[in-house]
Simulated scan of single mutants.
Amino acid sequence: MSTSEIIETGAGEARITWHAAKKARLVLAVSHGAGGGIEARDLQALAGALPPLGVSVALVEQPWRVAGKKVAPAPKTLDTGWRDLWPAVAKKGLPVVAGGRSAGARVACRTAAELGAAGVLALSFPLHPPGKPEKSRAAELLGAGVPTLVVQGGNDPFGKPAEFPEGAYELVEVPFGDHGFAVPKRASLTQQEALDVITAAVGEWLGTLMA
């Protein structure tokens, strides 16, 4: 069962949909990318799998998405919305991990240290635009300044796992997965198995932060 609340930010109204754990020890606040919303398969899988592990999941819809716009604003505006809604996800007094998929992962990395996040979960981190590896965003990932887990599809055109630089973060590969963690029907694992890789890896990693 989920509950939603609207939060006023400097970028407009954001929406938080809570999937609460009965005895929460940590909050994962996780946002969507520039091309979709919180209905993304990985976000929904985490919202279902993590509460039984003591993690309350806050699925965050950025103001542009709540307003019904189809194009995400500039990074500065995304960061403003995220900063302003942070008190709402931290209000329970629990450690909060900042998370996001794609553009949302970049926001989490850019703001984690200043907001006091306990860690960063970067789903499908867009290391570079497709076909343009020279336009690297590695500095954002490497500059997060907190424990970081990257979950990356093996065939992500925004950056395959082997393209990522060495750094103070963990990386888990989802075999055959694209930027949305979709796997081809001919792959040696099913779509559900791919999602299980994600939820198991994230659950295990969050467990280390609660230890």
Results as ranks from 00 to 15, higher is better:
55 V>N: 11
56 S>L: 06
58 A>G: 05
58 A>T: 07
60 V>Y: 00
63 P>A: 07
65 R>A: 05
73 P>Q: 10
76 K>V: 15
78 L>C: 10
80 T>C: 06
81 G>I: 09
83 R>L: 06
83 R>S: 00
88 A>D: 08
94 L>A: 04
94 L>Y: 09
102 S>V: 05
104 G>V: 05
104 G>S: 08
105 A>Y: 04
105 A>H: 07
105 A>M: 04
107 V>R: 12
108 A>I: 00
110 R>C: 07
110 R>I: 01
112 A>S: 11
113 A>H: 02
113 A>L: 08
117 A>F: 00
120 V>R: 05
122 A>N: 06
125 F>W: 07
127 L>D: 09
129 P>W: 12
131 G>D: 02
132 K>V: 13
134 E>I: 05
137 R>V: 11
141 L>C: 10
143 G>V: 00
144 A>T: 00
146 V>L: 04
148 T>F: 00
152 Q>I: 02
152 Q>F: 04
154 G>H: 09
159 G>E: 11
159 G>Y: 14
160 K>N: 06
161 P>G: 00
163 E>M: 08
168 A>I: 01
169 Y>C: 01
171 L>A: 04
171 L>R: 11
171 L>K: 08
174 V>Q: 09
176 F>D: 12
179 H>Y: 01
182 A>D: 14
184 P>V: 09
184 P>S: 09
185 K>F: 03
186 R>D: 12
186 R>E: 14
189 L>W: 01
190 T>K: 03
192 Q>F: 07
192 Q>D: 13
